[in-house]
Design a protein around this nucleic acid. Structure first.
Length: 586
RNA sequence: GCGUCCGUAGCUCAGUUGGAUAGAGUAGCGGCUUCCGAAGCCGUUGGUCGCAGGUUCGAAUCCUGCCGGGCGCGCCA
């Protein structure tokens, strides 16, 4: 409908230009919006106000000319000029009714668009280090990333969902060392655990399983393990130097094979847990991309080689630096440390090089907001490798602060008593968690009220929307119980009986759904969809309370049943994009 | 200190490629069930859009400064 009006307007502008009443058309984009106020008609455009300056006339006069030049259209009842120069369009209600058969015919495909035109988009989200279970911060990234990917797919993009598994690098070595030390404790060794090791209870579980599997074969006396190491932080040393020394010692004593056994025990156990956790959260991936595979394929060296040949690498203080400051970053960044180890950033350069090579039209990274300072260096790397930095879009997700009613839920990674995503799901359920996480703009802090998420009242937006769906299902159960007939085709013939204000408003809201999907997808803003669903549910509840659906008049009854069937379909489609259930009974 | 994001009703938040009288939920107040699920609905109270300038037909939205807050500023990831 918007498109149709835009075409009418551009034809009117063309006519005026030919007559010389307007300057030759530039590449102006005609903006047609839905009105907020009924008295302003159904759609409005600010076209006359935008063009007034170039036409050297006042907006209202120009608006009159534009309206006069509009080609006739069966659907447009009238066009009015209002306010400072808006042109308001009033649409024939009969044309609006057609959305109902359109929705029922399209079914689950209603709201599937073609704006994406099959362009390939890669979406990377969560990508938490496999050094421990997912916590509630990752949950928001998971819900958001998953919703964005689903929206883009609905909008017609070809979407590739990816999790970057940091299964290489220093943190994983620290994890392996932590597992090994707990394993030694299982064997009966007594030792002091490093300040910078992973202290979570899950490490003990992994060590316990490892010990059951390999018994004492990887055991070394504690005295041998810690002999000659620098002092740890509590003894006045440097915890970073200390943990690195512990890692080296583990590698040395265990040998390649033994070390790998410990390393993989930790990695596989945690990664399996993360996979299962996400699966239960309804979050899925097309690919789990291994960082280690980059090293094994020498991709990291290759990526750095690319930077070197482009003249962006230099040596200083024994380390290798990337001159990212020449490409907009605050300062240059180390890619190879003076001890010969690659930094995380070196892998990331290779990873992004790999993404570029795969030929995506757009690359979307979803990161925690605390990583925002990391964006310029990655963009710089892409540019240095000859790629287009604008292809990369980094979406930031702020952490959610958990509350139970008024009370803030304390979280502390240090003490290990952080709330895991699994704990959250167990407390509020998958549907509420998914819905709440994407209810707010992603780059904004949010308060997540656990008590509200579990309450079964109208205060809880999840239940409110789901209840609208269940209520419609209930109407159809009543229809059966009363033994009333239903004739869909006949209802379609008599849609013009839907003349109550609740009905026309509901129809207009239904017609908006594809526009909501488009803007939510293009703006990476699932909260737009959430707000829409709440609005649609509210209108359904209001309609339900104001009018009886199962009325005597069979024609009116069938028309109303067709309308609420369409509402149910849109609720289902929208909730499915968020992976929130649409139960038939509550 | 530098960078970056943010500041909208008592509370939680929408609304920012500039548009008409700034919205919703919740809290408060007052109503609605012989009838399809009251897990609902209707009405009402409540705002210097952080402050001060600027840009223009028009600013919550864009620009500048200030105030207040989050995050970042490692040869960590």
């Amino acid at each position: 409908m918007k498109k149709r009006l835009e075409n009418l307007l551009s034809s009117a502008v063309a006519t005026l230009s030919e007559r010389g009443e307007l300057p030759p058309p530039t590449d102006l984009s005609i903006l047609v919006e839905r009105t907020k106020d009924e008295s302003h008609g159904d759609f409005a455009t600010n076209l006359a106000m935008v063009l007034a300056k170039a036409a050297r006339t006042n907006p209202r006069q120009l608006a009159e000319k534009i309206v006069a030049a509009l080609p006739p259209d069966a659907v447009v009842v009238r066009a009015e000029i209002a306010g400072p120069g808006f042109i308001n369009f009033f649409i024939d209600p009969k044309a609006q009714y057609q959305i109902i058969p359109a929705i029922l015919q399209a079914g689950s495909g209603f709201g599937r668009l073609t704006v994406g035109a099959g362009r390939r988009v890669q979406v990377e989200y969560v990508s938490a280090n496999p050094t421990g279970p997912l916590h509630v911060g990752h949950g928001r990234g998971a819900a958001y990333g998953s919703a964005v990917a689903s929206l883009l797919k609905a909008a017609g993009f070809e979407v590739h969902r990816e999790y970057y598994v940091n299964d290489a690098g220093r943190q994983m070595d620290i994890l392996a060392a932590s597992v090994w030390l707990r394993y030694l404790e299982e064997c009966g060794e007594r030792l002091t655990f490093p300040a910078n090791g992973y202290r979570g209870e899950y490490i003990r579980d992994i060590a316990f399983q490892l010990h059951r599997k390999v018994s004492d074969t990887l055991r070394h006396p504690a005295a041998e393990v810690f002999h000659g190491l620098p002092s740890d932080e509590p003894e006045g040393g440097d915890k970073e130097l200390y943990i690195d020394a512990v890692v080296d010692r583990a590698k040395h004593l265990l040998g390649h094979h033994g070390y790998r056994t410990v390393f993989d025990a930790g990695l596989n156990s945690i990664l399996d847990d993360i996979r299962q956790d996400l699966a239960e959260f309804g979050v899925s991936y097309d690919e789990w991309f291994s960082e280690r595979s980059l090293a094994e394929n020498l991709a990291t060296e290759w990526g750095l080689g690319k930077l070197r040949s482009a003249g962006y690498l230099y040596e200083q203080d024994g380390a290798t630096w990337f001159a990212s400051s020449r490409l907009g970053d605050e300062k240059d960044r180390v890619v190879v440390r003076d001890n010969g180890q690659m930094t995380y950033f070196a892998s990331d350069i290779a990873y992004h090089h790999n993404k570029l090579e795969r030929g995506f039209d757009r690359i979307i990274n979803i990161w925690g907001a605390d990583h925002h300072g990391y964006i310029p260096r990655v963009k710089a790397a892409i540019q240095a490798m000859g790629g287009d930095p604008d292809k990369l879009e980094v979406l930031l997700v702020q952490f959610a602060v958990l509350y139970r009613g008024e009370e803030k839920v304390q979280m502390s990674t240090r003490s290990g008593e952080f709330v895991t995503l699994r704990q959250l799901r167990n407390e509020v359920g998958k549907d509420a968690a998914r819905f709440f996480y994407v209810m707010r703009k992603s780059d904004q802090h949010m308060d997540f009220d656990l008590k509200l998420a579990t309450s079964k009242t109208n205060e809880n937006p999840v239940f409110y929307v789901q209840y609208a769906h269940a209520r419609i299902c209930s109407v159809f159960r009543q229809l059966d119980e009363k033994g009333l007939p239903r004739d869909v085709a006949s209802g379609m013939q008599q849609l013009d009986k839907l003349s109550e204000s609740h009905e026309t408003a509901l129809i207009a809201t239904l017609a908006r759904y594809p526009e909501v999907i488009e803007s939510a997808a293009l703006q990476y803003a699932p909260h737009h969809l959430v707000n829409y669903l709440r609005e649609l549910a509210a209108e359904l509840h209001g309609y339900y309370n104001a009018h009886q659906f199962l009325v005597e008049d069979a024609g009116l009854r069938d028309a109303r049943l067709n309308l609420i069937t369409a509402v149910r379909q849109v609720l289902v489609n929208g909730l499915r994009l968020l992976d929130v259930g649409a139960p038939e009974t509550m």
